[in-house]
């Protein structure tokens, strides 16, 4: 695997992780979390753990994002303070 691509993905994973924690808008945090999961799935695939990557793609990037969004719709969209 080309190490430049790995480095870019790793940096993006960390950025999206911090972004999901830092944003006040919960809906964008949910989407950022989905992007974080998807990039993590790419990292698993690079390391050869294809089964784990598949699980991460379906559970982390797929269903859990939908569950978080549906939970956000039942509360206020922004975190205050």
């Amino acid at each position: 695997m080309i190490w430049q691509i790995e480095l870019i993905i790793l940096v993006l994973v960390v950025l999206f992780g911090f972004g999901a924690l830092a944003t006040k808008d919960l809906l964008s945090a949910a989407i950022l979390f989905g992007a974080y999961s998807f990039l993590l799935c790419l990292l698993w695939a690079i390391m050869g753990a294809v089964d784990v990557a598949f699980t991460e793609a379906s559970v982390g990037a797929g269903v859990s994002t939908v569950l978080i969004v549906s939970a956000v719709l039942r509360t206020t969209r922004r975190t205050d303070h």
Binding site: V50, D51, A53, F54, T55, S58, V59, G62, V63, V66
Partner: peptide, 13 residues
């Protein structure tokens, strides 16, 4: 790659 967990999640999705 695959199995019960992934297939079940896709089915639920």
């Amino acid at each position: 790659p695959g199995g019960g967990f992934q297939g079940g999640v896709i089915m639920g999705a």
